[in-house]
């Protein structure tokens, strides 16, 4: 027997999984703030996470499943939606209401997916060593630090974070609508809250690479340890 899931329910599943994923984003954000408190704080947070062992694996597996459900249902709906209008308008309906965030949802979604894969390869499934202020250090902190000292890497990171931010700007109020938790009165406020959260996420995550880059610049300029022999340092001295 083939069970046909009503479109509204599909949408609600997307909203629910999206909600759980935003929960992850929030937790991740809290963790990442540790960077501001230096390598020790950050590394011990990372270690603590790792020490969870099987629970962590379970959580990770859960996350992956949630992520796949979120994507899978979205892809089916997008395909169905495209099919619902076989002949396109000559003059595309002008955007009276839809915000940019709303219009680019599928693209930000795809971007986030690509980013998550790279991000995992980069930080999770990579060695945890990195150059911090010209010094090779062990720990996730060093790994992240080194990555962010690369301007191209940071730029990509910031773009991805913007995608997350845009995605959430639409998603949060959208979730309330999809669950039927918004009303004519509350909807405008929910939209505002959504935008605020989206912007906050962008600012906080986006400040990480900037923080690291500024710190690196600061670390390199005035003082250089004398037994460091890297070319760059030499260059600085001349």
């Amino acid at each position: 027997m083939k069970i046909k899931i009503p479109s509204i329910i599909k949408k609600q599943i997307i909203a629910l999984t999206g909600f759980l994923l935003s929960g992850f984003v929030a937790a991740h954000l809290l963790g990442n703030i540790m960077i501001f408190f230096g390598p020790d704080a950050y590394n011990s947070y990372a270690k603590k996470l790792m020490s969870l062992g099987p629970i962590l694996y379970l959580m990770e597996a859960g996350l992956i499943i949630i992520f796949l459900i979120h994507m899978g249902f979205t892809i089916t709906l997008v395909i169905e939606n495209r099919k619902a209008r076989p002949i396109a308008y000559k003059k595309t309906p002008s955007t009276k209401k839809r915000s940019i965030a709303t219009r680019i949802m599928p693209y930000t979604g795809t971007l986030i997916f690509a980013f998550v894969v790279l991000h995992l390869l980069d930080f999770k499934y990579n060695n945890h060593y990195g150059m911090v202020a010209g010094k090779l250090q062990e720990g996730l902190y060093a790994r992240v630090y080194e990555s962010f000292t690369d301007p191209l890497h940071s730029l990509l990171y910031i773009i991805a974070i913007c995608a997350v931010s845009f995605h959430l700007t639409h998603a949060i109020q959208s979730m309330f609508q999809t669950f039927g938790l918004s009303s004519a009165k509350s909807h405008p406020y929910l939209v505002k809250i959504s935008i605020t959260i989206g912007v906050l996420i962008a600012l906080i995550f986006g400040s990480l690479p900037i923080f690291v880059m500024v710190k690196e610049k600061a670390a390199q300029k005035p003082k250089v340890s004398f037994y460091d022999t890297s070319k760059e340092v030499m260059h600085n001295e001349t």
């Binding site: 169905e80 099919k83 009276k96 839809r98 219009r103 949802m105």
Partner: peptide
């Protein structure tokens, strides 16, 4: 019909 993606158009 397509499904709603809360675009509010």
């Amino acid at each position: 019909f397509g499904s709603c993606s809360n675009e509010y158009e």
